[in-house]
Amino acid sequence: MITVLFFASLKEQLGCNGISLSGAGINTINDIKQSLIADKPDWSKWLHKPNLLCAKNCEVVNGDCSVTSGDEVAFFPPVTGG
């Protein structure tokens, strides 16, 4: 299983805090996006936003980063703390 989390504006746009994926056929972060969009086509415009960030196990990574079962992957907009 791969745990996928969404934060801030993205969470509201998708209307979803997170989702669990079986991990079958998923090798990279980009595969996760494809899998989510295949299931929910209207998520495409939000998950394809160019400034969207991604973290794997709490480290910021790129779309071609590999993922395996047990990983926690999060998608979120640019941060605005401080």
């Binding site: 801030a8 640019p78 941060v79 605005t80 703390g81 401080g82």
Partner: peptide, 24 residues
């Protein structure tokens, strides 16, 4: 560094409603 790297997000309540703050 905290402002551009730590995963915090602000939303603001204004007369026009609540909106997410854009990164600067």
């Amino acid at each position: 560094w905290l402002k551009t790297k730590a995963p915090f997000w602000k939303s603001e309540e204004t007369a026009e409603g609540t909106k997410w703050v854009e990164a600067k």
